[in-house]
Design a binder for these strands. Structure first.
Length: 798
DNA sequence: AGCACGCCGACT
DNA sequence: GTCGGCGTGCTC
C-alpha cells in the first residue's frame, strides 16, 4: 500500500460505513480510475483500519489541512446503489440524524461490506509450542481460530503480551468473512475447432458430442444424460477439448408456483379509485390515501394500478407490513404478473436477498413486494409506490436506524416524482389529517366486495359479568352462544386477545408485590408449557411457583389472562373443536406462521386463538364469529397513540369476520363500553374515531400538530444515567430557542431493561429546525458508560 | 465502531 | 517506581 504519495488527479467523496456524519475525501490510484463511479463500493483506509465506503461523487476540491489517502480497491463491477438514488439516502440520513454510510449499509442487502480487525493469531513457532507451555490452554483456543484483540480481557491480555515477546503469537489485521456472495455454477462447452481423438472411450466421446449439440451446460443438466460425468469432464478439459465457464445462478425465495389468474371486475368505487390515481400517474409527485373498509378489495385496486404502471413500462413498489402478509399478497401479484415479482423481506437468507436485489437492479424484475426495507429496492423510475396497511406500527424500525418505511415511501416518491398510495381500512391519524388538510387526496371504498355486509358488532359489558365464575369470566354467555352456533354450522371462530402466555401477571397474595423481571421493570407472564415466568421484553425466565421472590410467602397467584388460558378455556367449552393458537410463541420458527395460515384457510381449524398478528389483513373466508376478549388491554400503554392503536387493532380484528360467503358477527367484551376508541371500533368508523382523536391531539399539541424526537438515555449505573438525562435535557433546552417543548427527563415506562437503566426525554415542536437543533445538542452530551440515542418520530414510547 | 493516546491507582 | 485501567478524541 502506498499512502505516502497520494495520487494526483482523481478525488472522490466517500460515505464510509462508520458512525461519521460527514463524507471523507479519498484519492483514486490510476489503475482503479476506470472502475470508480458514484454508487459503487470501495475499500478505504480509515485510521488504522480498512473499511467499506460508498462513492458519492467525483470531487474537485480536497478539504484543506487533511492528508488525502488513496482508496485500496473497488468492490463491485457495477454500482449496487443506483447513483440516482443517492440523494434519497442523503435526505434520509439527514432526517434521522444517522451517518450516511451506515444508512446505506442498512438499505443494501446485508453481509456484503468488508472491514478488518486486529486479531491475535498463532505464528508458525506458536503452532509447534508443546503442551508443556504454561499458556497451553490459550494457545489451544487460538489454534482453533484467531481471536479479536478487543475481545481479550484480564488474564488473556497479559498472556498475549508475553506470547508476543516469545514470538508464538502475532497481531494481524484480518477481514471478517463475507456473509453473502453471488452463487455461481460451473458450465462446460466444447472448444471451437477441436476434435476428440477417435481412440478414446465411448463415454467421453458421447459426452463431448452431447456438449457440442447442447451448448454450454452445467453439471446439473449434464447429469441428466450422464450419471457421473466428473471423470470424463476432467479428462476432456485436460485435453483442452472443452472449456470451463461460470454462470451466475439465482436463489428463488418464492417457493411454490401459483396459477395464473385474470383480473376480476371492479365495482364502481374500485373503478373510480383506480381511474383517479391513473389520471395522476404521469403528472409527477402525488399522494393518495386510499381508505377502504375491511374486505373492500383494496388489493384488487393495487393490482390494477400496478398493471397499468407496468404497461407503461414503469416499475412499482408495494410495501406490506408483515412477512406473513407478503406471502399472501405476493401470491396474488404473482398470479397476475407471473415472473416479474421480486420479494424483499427479512425472512430471506442473505444470499436470496442479494440475488433479488441484483435482479431488480438489472431491470429483470420491475415489481417489488416487501416489508419496510423494500422501500430501498433499486428499481429505476417507479411509476407508483403503494403502502398497504399504512397505519401499521411495524413500518417503523425499532433498532439501529429507526426509520419509518411509510414516511420514506413518501420521501422517495417525492424524489422520484411519482405517485404514492397509502392504503388502509383504519388510516393513521397522521394520514387522515394529511387528507383533511389537502396534502393527500382521499379516496374511499365504503362497501365490501360482492355486497357483503360489514360484520355486526355486539358489546358485552364485562363490568356486569363480575359475579360470573370460571370460564364465563372471560368467555361470556353471549360469546359462548355465538361460538356454539357457528361451530355447529361448521364455521370458524376467531378469539382475539392482546396478550400471549397463559395469564396476565403473577401477584403475591401476601405482600401484593407483582412478580417482575430481574432486569426489566415489567411484570412476568406465566407460560404453562414451560412451567416458567417469562419476561416478554428480554426473554428472562424463572421457574414458576407460588413462592414470592419478595416476601417468600407461598402466595403467588396469577391474575388476568393470556392466549394460553383462552386456548384452555376454549378447549374446556368445546372439547371436540380443533383449536389453533397463533402468537409469537407458536409461530417462532420460519415457515410456521405460513403453515398455520394455510391450515386455517383449508378449514383444518375450528377455533383460532391469537394475538395482534391475527389482526393484520389476513383473509380468512371461513371465519364468521370473532370474539374480542378484552378490548381494553391496548389502552393501558403509556403512549399518546394508545387510543389510536387500540381502535385500529379492534377494527382490524372485527374486520376478519364474514369475509367469505357468510356474514360475520363480532362480540366485543370490554370494561369501557363508552370509550371512544371502542365505540367507534364497533361501527368500524375510522372517520368518527379520527374526529374525536384529532381534537385531543390538537389541544395537546401532539403529532400531527407537532413533531417529536425522543432521546433515550441508558446505562448500567442509575445515578449516571439520571444525571446524563438531566444534562441532555438542559442542553436541549438551551439549544431550543424556546421553540421546543421538552418533556422529562423521566424514567422510561420500562425503567430497567436487560440490566440497563433507562431514562428518556421527549422533544416536541412545530419548528423543525429548532427541534433538530435541540435534539442534536442533547445527544452531543457524552458521558462514559451512558448511551444516548435519538428516535425521530418515535412510535413506541417504551 | 475501533483504535491510540493520555492520565491516575495497585502492584513487582 | 511501572503496568494497566478506562476516559477522550479522531479517523479523509
Amino acid at each position: 500500500m502506498d499512502t505516502s504519495m497520494p495520487s494526483q488527479a482523481l478525488l472522490i467523496s466517500v460515505a464510509v460505513d462508520a458512525p461519521l456524519m460527514t463524507p471523507f475525501t479519498y484519492g483514486v490510484p490510476d489503475k482503479l480510475r476506470t472502475s470508480v463511479t458514484p454508487g459503487i463500493r470501495v475499500l478505504v483506509p480509515l485510521g488504522k483500519r480498512t473499511v467499506t465506503g460508498y462513492v458519492l461523487r467525483i470531487t474537485a476540491s480536497p478539504p484543506d489541512g487533511i492528508r488525502i489517502v488513496d482508496i485500496l480497491d473497488v468492490l463491485d463491477t457495477s454500482p449496487l446503489v443506483p447513483p440516482e438514488h443517492l440523494p434519497f439516502y442523503q435526505r434520509m440520513a439527514a432526517y434521522y440524524h444517522h451517518p450516511l454510510g451506515e444508512t446505506l449499509a442498512t438499505a443494501l442487502p446485508s453481509g456484503l461490506n468488508l472491514s478488518d480487525r486486529s486479531m491475535v493469531v498463532l505464528t508458525d513457532k506458536g503452532q509447534h509450542a508443546g503442551p508443556e507451555h504454561p499458556f497451553n490452554c490459550f494457545l489451544d483456543k487460538l489454534a482453533r481460530k484467531p481471536i479479536p484483540l478487543q475481545k481479550l480481557q484480564g488474564m488473556e491480555k497479559k498472556q498475549v503480551t508475553q506470547l508476543l515477546e516469545e514470538g508464538l503469537v502475532a497481531i494481524e489485521r484480518i477481514f471478517s468473512p463475507k456473509k453473502a456472495s453471488p452463487r455461481t455454477r460451473k458450465t462446460y462447452a466444447v472448444t471451437d475447432g477441436m476434435q476428440p481423438p477417435l481412440s478414446t472411450s465411448p463415454a467421453r466421446l458421447s459426452l463431448w458430442e452431447w456438449l457440442k449439440e447442447n451448448g454450454p451446460a452445467d453439471t446439473g443438466r449434464i447429469q441428466q444424460v450422464m450419471p457421473s460425468p466428473t471423470a470424463s469432464l476432467r479428462w476432456l478439459r485436460e485435453k483442452g477439448l472443452i472449456a470451463e465457464g461460470e454462470v451466475r445462478i439465482f436463489r428463488d425465495p418464492l417457493g411454490d408456483t401459483v396459477e395464473q389468474d385474470s383480473p376480476p371486475r371492479l365495482n364502481d368505487e374500485q373503478k373510480s379509485a383506480v381511474q383517479t390515481i391513473l389520471d395522476h400517474m404521469n403528472r409527477g409527485f402525488h399522494r393518495f390515501l386510499l381508505h377502504g373498509v375491511t374486505g373492500s378489495g383494496k388489493t384488487e385496486v393495487y393490482l390494477h394500478l400496478v398493471e397499468a404502471c407496468l404497461e407503461r413500462g414503469k416499475t412499482a413498489i408495494v410495501l406490506v407490513p408483515e412477512i406473513a402478509l407478503i406471502s399472501q399478497i405476493a401470491g396474488r401479484f404473482r398470479a397476475r404478473f407471473g415472473e416479474k415479482v421480486a420479494v424483499l423481506h427479512s425472512g430471506l437468507s442473505k444470499g436470496e436477498r442479494l440475488d433479488q436485489w441484483e435482479k431488480i437492479l438489472s431491470g429483470e424484475l420491475p415489481l417489488v413486494i416487501g416489508a419496510r426495507s423494500a422501500i430501498f429496492a433499486p428499481v429505476l423510475k417507479p411509476g407508483i409506490i403503494i403502502v398497504d396497511e399504512e397505519h401499521d406500527p411495524s413500518y417503523k424500525q425499532d433498532t439501529g436506524l429507526r426509520y419509518n418505511g411509510r414516511d420514506m415511501s413518501i420521501l422517495r416518491a417525492q424524489l422520484e416524482n411519482c405517485t404514492v398510495v397509502l392504503g388502509s381500512a383504519t388510516p393513521s391519524v397522521q394520514s387522515f389529517e394529511n387528507a383533511r388538510n389537502g396534502r393527500f387526496s382521499l379516496l374511499k371504498l365504503t362497501r365490501r366486495v360482492n355486497q357483503r355486509p360489514l360484520p355486526e358488532v355486539s358489546l358485552v359489558d364485562l363490568r356486569e359479568m363480575k359475579q360470573a365464575s370460571g370460564v364465563e369470566r372471560y368467555i361470556s354467555r353471549p360469546l359462548y352462544g355465538a361460538m356454539k352456533t357457528a361451530l355447529e354450522k361448521g364455521e370458524q371462530v376467531l378469539l382475539f386477545l392482546n396478550r400471549r402466555g397463559y395469564a396476565g401477571f403473577p401477584v403475591c397474595g401476601a405482600c401484593g408485590e407483582i412478580v417482575r423481571c430481574r432486569h426489566c421493570d415489567i411484570s412476568l407472564t406465566l407460560h404453562r408449557k414451560a412451567n416458567a415466568f417469562l419476561c416478554h421484553f428480554c426473554g428472562f425466565s424463572m421457574a414458576s411457583g407460588p413462592l414470592c421472590p419478595s416476601c417468600r410467602a407461598p402466595e403467588v397467584r396469577v391474575l388476568g389472562m393470556g392466549t394460553e388460558k383462552v386456548e384452555a378455556a376454549a378447549h374446556y367449552l368445546f372439547p371436540d373443536a380443533r383449536i389453533l393458537r397463533m402468537d409469537q410463541d407458536t409461530t417462532g420458527k420460519k415457515g410456521q406462521l405460513i403453515r398455520m395460515l394455510r391450515q386455517i384457510r383449508n378449514r383444518e381449524v375450528d377455533i383460532l386463538v391469537g394475538t395482534q398478528m391475527v389482526a393484520k389483513g389476513h383473509d380468512f373466508p371461513g371465519i364468521t364469529v370473532v370474539g374480542i376478549l378484552n378490548a381494553d388491554l391496548g389502552l393501558s400503554f403509556p403512549d399518546f397513540r394508545a387510543g389510536e392503536r387500540n381502535f385500529q387493532t379492534l377494527a382490524q380484528v372485527a374486520g376478519r369476520a364474514g369475509r367469505g360467503e357468510l356474514s360475520g358477527r363480532v362480540i366485543l367484551q370490554t370494561y369501557n363500553p363508552d370509550h371512544y376508541s371502542i365505540r367507534t371500533a364497533c361501527s368500524q368508523d375510522s372517520e368518527a374515531f379520527f374526529k374525536e382523536e384529532i381534537t385531543t391531539r390538537r389541544m395537546l399539541g401532539y403529532p400531527p400538530f407537532s413533531r417529536m424526537i425522543q432521546i433515550r438515555i441508558s446505562g448500567e449505573k442509575e445515578e449516571r444515567v439520571q444525571e446524563t438525562a438531566r444534562m441532555a435535557a438542559e442542553a436541549a433546552k438551551s439549544a431550543s430557542s424556546g421553540k421546543v417543548r421538552i418533556l422529562g427527563p423521566a424514567e422510561a415506562p420500562i425503567a430497567r431493561m436487560a440490566g440497563q437503566f433507562r431514562h428518556q426525554i421527549l422533544l416536541m415542536g412545530t419548528d423543525i429546525a429548532c427541534l433538530n437543533e435541540s435534539a442534536m445538542a442533547a445527544v452531543d452530551i457524552r458521558v462514559s458508560g451512558v448511551r444516548l440515542l435519538m428516535d425521530v418520530d418515535p412510535y413506541s414510547m417504551l
